[in-house]
């Protein structure tokens, strides 16, 4: 009976895990072997550093990341963590990165709005003062905040990588309005914009963001070839770190917790067997 119950439970979980059947083709999702996959996965510091550079030099022009502070870059697991500086606010590299960026402030003497170099305690400044300005500068589409984007999209970093490398020439027969770009990994249903064979609707959707990356657009300090694929990979990894900065602590803590619980459970099992050994039941 117990076995039957487990089988049924497994069946239920299999149901829950299966993707929804869609009438139109599903967007392309490429899976990447990330360094942070699996229970022992760790962030690749060099990759996060490259990813930060891509974000700073490309994405930050339009996308805010309002939940991150410069100090986060120097925290354990972060791209510029240095074990010498337990307090990330003292990390000189993080300080210099922050100093390069101007943030808004109020002059405490005059009350005037001013700009000053950022400190590690400052949040990443947003490129637009408010949502309306962001929309007005981007053809009516609000560039989403990237702080937790890697958790806010199904597929996470795989999706971000797929989207950034998913731009293709518009297929003949697909109507794409001005200011929109065809992307095989964007979610959507192109059936209504498709004039070709009804059974061959192209996968993907349209997106208002023009292809942001191009070969050589960012120069990597570690000499990695700066291809679109590499940039997309690195920035997706960086965004995953940004969304889940405590991942390494979590998995480390988890290992200890699992081992402890396993020992605890085994001990209890033997204790249980011993106590019950003489009871007919």
């Amino acid at each position: 009976m117990l076995r039957k119950g487990i089988a049924l439970a497994a069946l239920g979980l299999a149901f829950l895990g299966s993707p929804a059947l869609a009438a139109h083709p599903t967007p392309v999702l490429k899976t990447v072997a990330w360094s942070f996959d699996g229970p022992f996965g760790k962030f690749d510091t060099a990759q996060l550093q490259r990813g930060y550079k891509v974000y700073r030099e490309v994405c930050a022009a339009c996308h805010a990341m309002s939940m991150l502070s410069f100090r986060n870059l120097g925290e354990p697991g972060g791209p510029f963590y240095d074990p010498k500086y337990k307090n990330p606010n003292d990390n000189p590299y993080v300080k210099s990165l922050a100093k390069d960026i101007q943030v808004n402030d109020i002059d405490s003497d005059t009350g005037d709005a001013i700009q000053r170099p950022a400190t590690p305690a400052d949040r990443f400044p947003s490129p637009f003062p408010n949502e309306a300005a962001a929309k007005a500068s981007n053809g009516g589409a609000m560039p989403p905040d990237l702080s937790v984007i890697a958790k806010g999209r199904t597929g996470g970093p795989d999706y971000l990588y797929s989207l950034l490398t998913g731009y293709r020439a518009t297929p003949a027969g697909l109507t794409v309005s001005a200011g929109q770009y065809y992307n095989v990994s964007m979610s959507g249903d192109l059936t209504s914009a498709w004039t070709g064979d009804h059974h061959k609707v192209p996968p993907g959707g349209v997106i208002a963001m023009p292809p942001p990356l191009e070969d050589g657009k960012v120069t990597f300090d570690d000499g990695k070839p700066s291809t679109v694929d590499q940039q997309a990979r690195d920035v997706a990894a960086f965004l995953y770190w940004a969304a889940e900065p405590k991942m390494m602590q979590r998995k480390q803590f988890g290992l200890g917790a699992m081992v402890y619980l396993l020992i605890f459970t085994v001990l209890l099992y033997f204790s249980y067997r011993r106590i019950w050994r003489n009871v007919a039941h």
């Binding site: 402890y260 020992i263 605890f264 001990l267 209890l268 033997f270 204790s271 011993r274 106590i275």
Partner: peptide, 8 residues
Amino acid sequence: IHIAAGAA
């Protein structure tokens, strides 16, 4: 066994 389980 019981003491170990309790301690755990």
